[in-house]
Amino acid sequence: MQAFVKTLTGKTITLEVEPSDTIENVKAKIQDKEGIPPDQQRLIFAGKQLEDGRTLSDYNIQKESTLHLVLR
């Protein structure tokens, strides 16, 4: 499924993900596309910070959801 990641600069990245993907996995995909190390990434969805060990389905993130990427 497709999900979108919006950065603070307003850029939107499109990712191909599965509901079973972990947040860690998603961060690795963002690193592949953008070169941002996962340890600098914080992903926010519905106002919550997403934890590495959880999956997209844990957070009820469905296709075409938009996550927000904040860098630390």
Rank of each mutant, 00 (worst) to 15 (best):
Ser57Arg: 12
Gly53Pro: 06
Lys33His: 10
Lys63Thr: 14
Gly10Ala: 03
Ser57Lys: 12
Asn60Arg: 07
Gln49Pro: 11
Asp32Asn: 11
Thr12Met: 12
Phe45Ala: 03
Glu16Gly: 05
Glu18Met: 15
Asp58Ser: 13
Leu8Trp: 15
Arg54Thr: 07
Arg42Pro: 01
Ile13Tyr: 05
Gln49Asn: 11
Val17Met: 04
Ile30Gln: 00
Thr9Cys: 14
Pro38Ala: 15
Glu34Ile: 15
Glu51Tyr: 08
Gln40Ser: 09
Ala3Lys: 01
Thr9Met: 10
Thr14Ser: 10
Val26Met: 06
Glu16Asp: 11
Ser57Glu: 12
Lys33Glu: 07
Gly10Lys: 04
Ala46Asn: 15
Glu34Leu: 15
Gln41Phe: 14
Gln40Leu: 11
Gly47Asn: 06
Asp39Asn: 12
Gly10Gln: 04
Ala46Trp: 09
Lys33Val: 12
Ala46Pro: 01
Ile36Lys: 02
Pro37Tyr: 06
Ile13Val: 06
Ile36Thr: 07
Leu8Asn: 12
Thr22His: 04
Leu56Glu: 00
Phe4Ala: 04
Met1Arg: 04
Ile36Asn: 03
Ala3Ser: 04
Met1Asp: 03
Lys33Gln: 11
Glu51Ser: 08
Lys48Glu: 13
Leu50Asn: 00
Thr55Ser: 08
Asp39Trp: 14
Lys33Tyr: 09
Gln41Tyr: 13
Val5Phe: 05
Thr22Gly: 03
Thr55Ala: 06
Met1Glu: 03
Asp52Pro: 06
Ile13Gln: 01
Leu71Met: 09
Thr14Arg: 10
Thr22Glu: 03
Asn25Pro: 00
Leu43Phe: 03
Lys33Asn: 05
Gln41Cys: 06
Gly10Ser: 04
Thr14Phe: 09
Leu15Tyr: 01
Ile13Met: 05
Ile13Asn: 01
Asn25Gln: 14
Ile23Glu: 01
His68Asp: 08
Glu64Cys: 10
Lys6Gly: 03
Pro38Val: 15
Ile61Ala: 03
Gln40Trp: 12
Val26Cys: 03
Val70Trp: 10
Glu51His: 09
Val70Pro: 01
Lys33Pro: 02
Asp32Met: 13
Gln41Arg: 01
Asp32Val: 13
Arg42Leu: 15
Ala46Phe: 09
Gln31Pro: 01
Lys27Val: 02
Thr7Gly: 06
Thr7Lys: 04
Asp21Trp: 09
Gly47Asp: 06
Ile13Phe: 11
Asp58His: 11
Lys29Met: 13
Ile61Arg: 02
Gln62Val: 14
Ala3Met: 15
Gly35Arg: 06
Lys11Pro: 04
Ile36Tyr: 14
Val5Arg: 00
Asp32His: 11
Ile30Trp: 00
Asp52Thr: 06
Lys63Ser: 15
Arg72Asn: 13
Lys29Arg: 07
Ile13Pro: 00
Phe45Asp: 01
Glu24Thr: 08
Gln2Glu: 08
Lys63Met: 11
Ala28Ser: 11
Gln31Tyr: 15
Glu64Lys: 07
Ser57Met: 11
Arg42Tyr: 14
Leu67Asp: 01
Asn60Val: 05
Ala3Glu: 02
Pro19Thr: 08
Asn60Trp: 05
Ile36Leu: 06
Thr22Cys: 04
Asp21Val: 03
Thr12Glu: 06
Tyr59Val: 03
Leu67Arg: 01
Leu56Phe: 04
Val5Ile: 13
Ala3Val: 15
Ala46Val: 06
Arg72Pro: 12
Lys33Arg: 10
Glu16Trp: 15
Ile44Ala: 05
Lys11Asp: 07
Gly53Arg: 09
Glu51Asn: 07
Gly47Tyr: 04
Met1Val: 06
Val70Arg: 10
Asp58Gly: 03
Thr12Gln: 07
Asn60Ser: 08
Tyr59Ser: 02
Thr66Gln: 07
Phe4Lys: 07
Asn25Phe: 11
Asp21Tyr: 07
Glu16Tyr: 13
Asn60Asp: 10
Lys48Cys: 09
Leu56Gln: 00
Ile36Asp: 02
Leu43Ser: 00
Lys11Leu: 11
Leu71Asn: 07
Thr14Lys: 09
Glu24Ser: 13
Asp52Val: 05
Val17Pro: 01
Gln31Glu: 10
Ala3Ile: 15
Glu18Thr: 15
Ser65Gln: 08
Asp21Met: 12
Asp32Ser: 12
Asp52Ser: 07
Ile30Asn: 00
Ile44Tyr: 15
Ile44Gly: 03
Lys33Ala: 13
Leu43Asn: 00
Ser20Glu: 10
Ile13Leu: 08
Gln31Arg: 12
Leu69Phe: 04
Leu43Thr: 00
Leu56Pro: 00
Asn60Lys: 09
Ile13Lys: 01
Arg72Ala: 14
Gln40Thr: 08
Gly35Met: 05
Glu64Ser: 10
Lys29Gln: 10
Lys48Ala: 10
Asp58Tyr: 15
Ile30Ala: 01
Glu34His: 08
Lys63Cys: 07
Tyr59Asp: 01
Gln40Pro: 02
Glu51Leu: 11
Leu15Pro: 00
Thr22Asn: 04
Asp58Ile: 03
Gln62Tyr: 11
Pro37Asn: 07
Gly10Val: 02
Ala28Thr: 09
Thr66Pro: 06
Lys33Phe: 08
Val70Glu: 13
Leu71Gly: 07
Thr66Trp: 08
Thr66Ala: 06
Ala28Glu: 10
Leu67Trp: 03
Ile44Lys: 05
Gly47Cys: 07
Asp21Glu: 09
Val70Thr: 09
Val5Gln: 01
Thr7Asn: 05
Leu67Cys: 01
Asp52Ala: 07
Leu69Ile: 07
Lys63Gln: 13
Ile61Asn: 02
Arg54Ser: 07
Asp39Leu: 08
Leu8Thr: 14
Gly35Asn: 07
Asp32Gln: 14
Thr7Ser: 06
Asn60Gln: 09
Ile23Val: 10
Glu64Tyr: 12
Phe4Arg: 07
Leu50Ile: 04
Gly35Val: 02
Leu71Cys: 07
Arg42Trp: 11
Met1Asn: 04
Phe45Thr: 02
Glu16Arg: 09
Asp32Trp: 10
Asp52Leu: 05
Gly10Leu: 03
Ile44His: 11
Lys48His: 12
Ile23Tyr: 01
Leu67Val: 07
Val26Pro: 00
Gln41Asn: 02
Lys6Pro: 02
Asp58Phe: 13
Ile23Pro: 02
Val17Thr: 03
Lys6Thr: 12
Thr12Ile: 15
Phe45Tyr: 14
Arg42Gly: 06
Ile13Ser: 02
Asp21Ser: 07
Ser65Val: 13
Arg54Cys: 10
Asn25Cys: 11
Thr22Ile: 04
Ile44Ser: 10
Val70Lys: 08
Thr12Ala: 04
Leu43Lys: 00
Pro38His: 10
Leu43Glu: 00
Gly47Ile: 01
Ser20Arg: 09
Phe45Ser: 03
Glu16Thr: 13
Leu71Ser: 08
Ala28Asp: 07
Ser57Gln: 13
Leu69Gly: 01
Thr14Met: 12
Gly47Thr: 04
Val70Ala: 08
Val26Ala: 02
Glu51Cys: 10
Gln49Ala: 12
Thr7His: 05
Tyr59Met: 03
Ala3Cys: 15
Asp32Arg: 12
Thr14Cys: 09
Thr55Val: 06
Ile44Gln: 06
Thr66His: 15
Leu69Ser: 01
Ala28Asn: 11
Phe45Gln: 03
Gly53Thr: 10
Glu34Met: 15
Ser20Asn: 12
Leu56Trp: 04
Val70Ser: 08
Ser65Ile: 08
Val17Ala: 03
Glu16Leu: 14
Ile30His: 00
Ile23Thr: 05
Thr14Asp: 05
Glu64Leu: 09
Leu71Trp: 08
Lys11Glu: 08
Ser65Arg: 06
Gln41Ala: 04
Ser20Pro: 03
Ile30Phe: 02
Ala46Met: 14
Met1Trp: 12
Pro38Ser: 14
Val5Ser: 01
Ala28Leu: 14
Asn60Phe: 08
Thr9Asp: 14
Thr14Ala: 09
Pro19Glu: 08
Glu64Trp: 11
Gln31Trp: 15
Arg42Gln: 13
Glu16Met: 13
Thr22Phe: 08
Thr66Leu: 10
Ala28Gln: 13
Gly10Met: 03
Ser20Gly: 11
Lys11Val: 09
Ala3Phe: 14
Thr12Phe: 10
Ile44Asn: 05
Ile30Thr: 01
Ala46Gly: 12
Gly10Arg: 03
Gln31Gly: 07
Gln41Lys: 01
Glu51Gln: 11
Asp21Gly: 03
Ala3Leu: 15
Lys29Gly: 02
Lys63Ile: 07
Leu71Lys: 07
Glu18Ala: 13
Leu50Trp: 02
Asp58Met: 05
Pro37Leu: 07
Glu64Val: 05
Ile61Met: 06
Ile23His: 01
Lys6Arg: 10
Asp39Ser: 14
Thr22Ala: 04
Ile23Met: 03
Phe4Gln: 06
Gln31His: 14
Phe45Trp: 10
Thr14Ile: 14
Leu8Ser: 15
Ala46Glu: 15
Gly10Phe: 03
Leu43Arg: 00
Val26Asn: 00
Thr22Trp: 05
Glu16Pro: 04
Thr7Leu: 15
Asp39Thr: 10
Glu24Gly: 13
Val26Phe: 04
Gly47Leu: 03
Leu56Thr: 01
Asn25Thr: 14
Thr66Tyr: 09
Ser20Val: 05
Arg54Ala: 08
Ile36Glu: 02
Ala46Gln: 15
Thr14Val: 15
Thr66Val: 14
Thr14Gly: 05
Thr9Asn: 13
Glu16Ile: 14
Leu43Ala: 00
Leu71Asp: 07
Asp58Glu: 10
Lys27Cys: 02
Ser57Asp: 09
Ala28Trp: 11
Asn60Cys: 06
Lys29Glu: 02
Lys11Ile: 09
Gln62Asn: 10
Val17Arg: 00
Leu50Asp: 00
Lys63Arg: 12
Glu16Val: 12
Leu67Thr: 02
Gly35Cys: 05
Ser20Gln: 11
Gly47Glu: 05
Thr22Pro: 05
Arg72Tyr: 11
Lys27Asn: 00
Ala3Trp: 05
Gln49Gly: 06
Arg54Lys: 14
Ser57Val: 07
Gly10Asp: 04
Ser20Met: 11
Gly35Phe: 04
Lys33Ile: 14
Lys11Arg: 11
Ala28Lys: 15
Asn60Leu: 08
Gly47Ala: 04
Ser20Tyr: 11
Ile13Glu: 01
Pro37Lys: 07
Lys27Gly: 01
Val26His: 00
Lys6Ile: 14
Ile36Gly: 02
Thr66Asn: 06
Val70Tyr: 13
Gln40Phe: 09
Gln62Leu: 11
Leu43Ile: 09
Ser57His: 10
Gln41Trp: 05
Gly53Glu: 11
Ile13Cys: 02
Lys48Ser: 08
Ala28Arg: 15
Gln2Leu: 15
Gln49Leu: 15
Arg72Lys: 14
Arg72His: 13
Leu50Ala: 02
Pro38Met: 15
